[in-house]
Design a protein around this nucleic acid. Sequence first.
DNA 1: TGACGATCGTTGCCTTGTCAACAATCGGCC
DNA 2: GGCCGATTGTTGACAAGGCAACGATCGTCA
Lengths: 186, 186
Amino acid sequence: MSTPSISALSSRSGVVSPSAAASATVVADEPGIGAWRSFLHAHARITRRLDEELQAAHGLSLAEYDALLQIAHAPGRRVRMNVLAERVILSRSGITRLVDRLEAAGSVERAACSTDARGQEAVLTKAGLERLRAAATTHLDGVRRYFLDRLDAEDLAALEASLGRVSDPLGPASRSGHEGCAPDEA
Amino acid sequence: MSTPSISALSSRSGVVSPSAAASATVVADEPGIGAWRSFLHAHARITRRLDEELQAAHGLSLAEYDALLQIAHAPGRRVRMNVLAERVILSRSGITRLVDRLEAAGSVERAACSTDARGQEAVLTKAGLERLRAAATTHLDGVRRYFLDRLDAEDLAALEASLGRVSDPLGPASRSGHEGCAPDEA
DNA sequence: TGACGATCGTTGCCTTGTCAACAATCGGCC
DNA sequence: GGCCGATTGTTGACAAGGCAACGATCGTCA
């Protein structure tokens, strides 16, 4: 588990020091790089913390928590592996294995998809829902402490707008609007 | 390589639908969660893209790039493993292995630390510097395309301020101000 | 109806990074 | 000076996730 780090990646100043010998310039700097570094740093620190807390308190990684949440939100509390992978931002094999774990833990069950014989759905169990509920308090508490509480409403609005703009199309991105197989739950 | 996903993690609405049967409420929602989700999403998308590009063009992961950059910025182009780990946000073992790779590629060399017999330093080689320079153009170009160009100066300033505030102390964080062993390069 | 490319979920193999344990060394305190 | 806890870098064992390949199925088009 844990966050993969990624970390920062840019420069500070074009020239290290006037006295530094040979080739002093490493990488040209640029306005805005500071924001980028803050972005990476904040992400690395916060997600690491959140993951630790979630793991310690409920034995869930952030990705697993997210998967449970996505399933819980879907109509019928079931989602095709397919779309789950997309939402949690994992490869198909990654989702297969993540669901394996959740299934082994009894939080999720697999079910054949009624309209597509190739398909599998991940269905949230009662135990899974319970686990998610418990984990949510821990998680949301962390998000508040590390993120929300440090920003006022204005900051949050600005952040959401900026970051939303940043991640929107991002090149040749595919987007499907489907959900699962079952139309809905009774 | 690639980004570890992490993904989003919160809720949309407290109640799924008035018609949804049994326990409809999954997780309580909260103002600001939208910003948080944007944050995670933007990070996942962008770093994945940047990592792919860097990997394809120069065979470097984002973490490796960052490590090279950190070393290049240090006085003498050398850094203690110790502090390098801290800056790249990796565990000590993680840094050992990352430097192993860079060393195998000829981008870095290990050297004993003059003032602490336990210590090792990662020293940037000429080839490493060259590689970093080449990679930097690719990388900075990506950062611009995916991040900087989508935000105006005001957004960037706001982002930097907000995110900086968010990642600052973050609880019991240690901070050392050291650099390496050698005072500086001739 | 049958053939053919596309899609779905899974699996084997690989890479990356973590944790725990280790030997070597440091630093302080007696 | 010598002991003892703390720190440093490395290693072994492991978890997580990606890619490529697979068998099964779908959808389309002839």
